[in-house]
Every structure is written in C-alpha cells, then in structure tokens.
Design a protein around this nucleic acid. Sequence first.
DNA 1: AAATATAATACAATCGATTGTACCAATAAT
DNA 2: ATTATTGGTACAATCGATTGTATTATATTT
Lengths: 339, 339
Amino acid sequence: MKKATIHEIAKALNIDSSTVSRALNDSDRVRAKTKKRVLDKARELGYTRNLLASNLRRNKSNTIGVVVPRISRYFFSSTIAGIEEMAYQAGYNVIICQSLEEVLREQKIIRNLMANRVVGILISVTMQTRDTAHLTECFENGTPLVFFDRHVTGIKQTGKVLLDDVRGGFEATEHLIHQGCKKIVHFTAPLEVEIYKNRHEGYRSALAKYDLPYDENLVFVSTLLKEDGYRLAGKIVEELDGVDGIFSANDFAALGALNYLKKSGIRVPGDIAIVGFSNEPTSAVIEPSLTTVDQSGTEIGRLACNLLLDYFENGNTLINDKTIMIPPKLIVRESSKRY
Amino acid sequence: MKKATIHEIAKALNIDSSTVSRALNDSDRVRAKTKKRVLDKARELGYTRNLLASNLRRNKSNTIGVVVPRISRYFFSSTIAGIEEMAYQAGYNVIICQSLEEVLREQKIIRNLMANRVVGILISVTMQTRDTAHLTECFENGTPLVFFDRHVTGIKQTGKVLLDDVRGGFEATEHLIHQGCKKIVHFTAPLEVEIYKNRHEGYRSALAKYDLPYDENLVFVSTLLKEDGYRLAGKIVEELDGVDGIFSANDFAALGALNYLKKSGIRVPGDIAIVGFSNEPTSAVIEPSLTTVDQSGTEIGRLACNLLLDYFENGNTLINDKTIMIPPKLIVRESSKRY
DNA sequence: AAATATAATACAATCGATTGTACCAATAAT
DNA sequence: ATTATTGGTACAATCGATTGTATTATATTT
C-alpha cells in the first residue's frame, strides 16, 4: 500500500540514498554491480519513482498544458491527439483543459497550469479573448506559449502554428467564382478573432481579383453554430435576391444552411453553391457532400507540440513569434461542383 | 522570472513562512489582519503557489488520470469533456492519455500515471486488454480505478460506469424484428471484449424471444472499422441469401455497410434494414440516416468522474465494484424504418 | 612502497509548502 | 495580583528525490 522510496532501497542495501538515486538514473558515478543490486531491490520492493518529488527538486513538471475551447469538437480532439502523440514520445504528460469559450475560465486555467509548473502551454484561445494579460504573464514567468489555430496578435515571445486562413478564404471564394457564382455571401464570426478576420480578408481579396463588388450586407456575423447557418440561410432567401454562393467560415454554419436550403427545395449547388471551412467528419457524408477547406488537426497538433519540444532542446532560437504557416487544402465536393 | 515563494513573503513581512502558508490557506490560526498583509504582499510579489511542492507534502497530486483508446473518437472526446467538466468544478486537473489500442502503451501509461501520483484513474481499455496485471496494481497501490464503457471483469475494488449493452443489443435486434426482419446478421468485435460480448448476448436473446434461429454464420467478427463493414456487406450479398437486417456493434461498420449497399443498388431499409451502435455524429446526417443506440459520452464521463469524486469524500463505500448501469436509448432513423 | 590519480560512495543541503508542537503574548478567571 | 486560558506565531521536521562536495577505497604510476 505504502509506496517504497529510494531511502528504503538504500537502507535495505546498506548504501546511501544518493547512490540509489544515481543508480536509478543510470549515472556513471555508480558501479555496474551496484546498479544491478539497486535495480533488483527496486523491483523487489515495487518501487516507482515519485515524480512529484523529482519534479519539485528539478523545478520542472515534465507536463505540457493544453487549452482548447472544447474538447469534443473534432478539430480540437484531433489536435489533442497529435499533441499527445508527440508529447508521449518525448516523455511528457499532457494536461488538457477546456475553456468552453469563456475568458474567465481561460484565465483561471492558465493560472492553474502555471501553479502546476507546466513546462509550456499550447493554446487555442476563446472567441472572446481580447484582454491578453493572462497570456503575457506566461512568458513573463518563463513559461513558453505556443498558439495553434485561434491565436492573438501583439504578443512576442510565442510560437504559432496556423493555417493560412487568408489563403484558405481566398481559395474557397475563388472556387465559388470559378463555378460561376456572382453574388457570394460570407458567414463569419466576430472579426476581432484573427482566424475569422483572415478568412474574411481572403474572401474579400478573391472578390477584388475577379472584379466582384464587396458588399457589407452580404457578410453575416454570428457564432457560426449550425442554427446560425440555418437561420441565416432563411434570411438570405427571404430578404436578398440573386445570391448564388455561400462561403461559410466554418462547416457547422454551412451544414445548417445546407439543411435549410434542402428543406426549402432550393438546389445545392444548382441554385446556391456552398463552401465551408474545417472539414468536419460530417461534411463528407452529408448529401450533397460539402466542399470545404481542410485543416489537419492532428498535423497542427504535432507541429505545435514539436515547436515547444524544439524550444526545450534548442533554447530561444525557435520561440520568438515563430510562426509555422500551414497551407490550406480545398476539398471540392458536391455542394459546389457545378460542372 | 524567478517565482516568489512563501519564504520570500515571510521575509518581507518579517514573519514565519508557516504563518504565511496558513494565511494563504485561510486557516483560523492566523489573525485576519495578518492574512490581509500576507495576501497583499503575495499579490505584490506575483506569488503563485507551487503545487509541485504542495502536492509532494500532501502526497497527492490533485490530478486525475484518464486513459482512452483514442481521443479523436467522438464518443471518447465527449466522455473526456464530461470528465474534465466535473473535475474542473471540484478543483482537479485531468491528464489525458491515449492507448491507441495498444496494451503495451496502456501499461506504460498506467505506470506513468502512478508515478505521477494521480489520485485516481478513469479508463476505457483497449480491445486487446486481456492481462490485467497493470490494472490490479492500481488499487494495490491505493489508486482507485473507475472503468467506463470498455471494462474488464474480475477486478474487485473498482467502479464502473457502463451502458447496458445487453439491453442495447436486445433492443436494436428486437427493433429489426419488429420491422419484419427474419434473417439478421450481426457485426461484432472479438467477444472477449465485454461490451461486444454483451451486445452479442442481447442480439442472441432477442432472436430467442421471437423464436428466430441463432446462426453462427451470421455473426461476423472484425475490428469494426468502416472498411470492415463495407467488405462484410459485400460478403453478405455475394455469399448469403435472404439477409434482411444488419445489427452492427458500432456505427462505423454500419456506415461502411450502408455505403456498400447504396453503391450496389440494394435498398436500405427496403431490402436490408440496418441498426448501428454508438450514435456517431455522422450517423444522423448520412442518407438514409442510421438507426442506432445512443450512449451519451458526456453523461458517462460525468458519472465516472463523480464516482471517483464521491469516493474521495465518502471513502470506501462507493468504489467496490460499484457499477452504474446506463440505460441505452434506441434512436430510430431511416435506415431501419419500414413502416 | 609511497605517491598520485581515479572510481565509487557517503554526506548534507535543497526544492517549496505543510503541519504538529512549542512558545509567548494578551485576556479572562480566581 | 496571580494563575489559567487561548489566540496568534515561531520553530522544526517532513514529503522523496536530486546534486555539489567531501571522503574513502581502489587502481595506477613512479
């Protein structure tokens, strides 16, 4: 029941606990024969190193903190999977926290992770995060920070792994234009959030390239839930005229719109073509299947974690607003394919 | 950069660090006035409690370990969300690990969690877990264990939160029978795995109840991937005659089968009705939508975590092979609805 | 064999917070 | 005024492992 310690091993072998510690850590200050005796006795006593003590002494927790808005969202659970995979290989633990899109919770979580002396934090911020004091605190305390996907600007001394959202928005919109769309609506979330700002920028620059007018009335800001998409699609049909394309900044809203249009007997892509963003699993199986921009969560997670791991090995060189930009991949499916 | 400690606060105020500690923990052995001075100074110095030290002293980590086969599977990410939610409320951290269906990894993970002195472990085991030594070790070391969903039998001193798989299998099969199916195939995974054994048992007893023969040749064991479903559906169509129903022990294989049948021009549910298990998000949107048995991951996660938390508060009373059985919920959709 | 070098181990401080016991003050009781 | 009580602090040990330094035992050199 009670766990064995190095001191008990030491006493049993009549040697000092420091020697036991070194033996267990395979130090070359201990003779091979002694090591063997220690290891055998350790096994006999069912010894497991107390990492709490070890971490305290070394003042490191060998734990990485991860903060996401919501674990059960596919994109985030895939990033977590990628992060965990890399961390495990390198011998780190991963503490997962979800902010549930609440800034207050995010702040508390960060403080808690700091109190736990995590070696670094990987974070995708909430949609509401404007005040970044809790984030700047991190590197001020010497805890490196890496953003992935949802990030904030203006903080130096961090790493970032981002999808090239501008390009993603551009390609999505351009694709719709290539399919003959002339009046393209854009569903987005508050433009203070970097990723949505960037997708919007891509949308806008695609319109510009093809000499289509940018019309503020065609841009709808919401929380991008399925219900928002459903509602907005209704609005478009009722109140606007001649809309022939929708570019939604995420798949959920796109799927909601798709639902509404199907139910209303409006043909997709015939009457209105739709492109989403994120490549949710659902998007591939719905009918018509949804054209979308893929962002490989697993890959982003791996890269973000590696950025941190590299930092530990190579020092300051890597984290200094170092940004890894991932190219977006447009996945063309039925919802937009007119030819 | 360097973090402040209680000793620095103590020195600054010219009092003892034990008083500071008690003040920070709001002990009634410290005068209100002193508490205020300590708190103010703590804020001034940017103090954050070092949980590593605190945990070591109390020999508890205030961390709960969670082990799942794969984080990115929807069911598991929802359970994690539920677990994290409860744990957060109670002031615990959650370390998440994925076994990736590898027993060896599972063993290593358990050992690591023990070394980290987690206060308890919530686990859903791999499909391959037969040898349970690493699990019995847990409670031998005083670390309580709670299984959810995928469990093993024969270990006392654990809690369990399970879906009533027997009943789920029964209801799924009975439903198919009610829809007029006479020759029902069952897709399952190795029957050494409890949940699959139980779903199979439900299948079998439903057949018995309605005097339908149980035929081993109608039971197909695989890993239940989408591809397995696709392949097996082909086999059924080619090699068997008169199959008019499929009960798959998970949705993935059911979706694979659905794909094959659609592609082959076989009507679902007209020719063959299909029922899955788990209610994956995809299952609701595919056409025809898939009838399935719902298991609320979030709810299971919450319950599992609460079982552990109750144990901490109420001692041994709660964990002693205590099993919480959740009733399954059959969700009837198009893939099986004949009338 | 003596002197030096080196390998192996022991000693002791430390990481930061917690907690039982001891102590001193101020107040209450006699 | 003296003793008993108790509220508020200080002292010191402790959790278990790590690590710089000191010491002893062995090996090498002269």
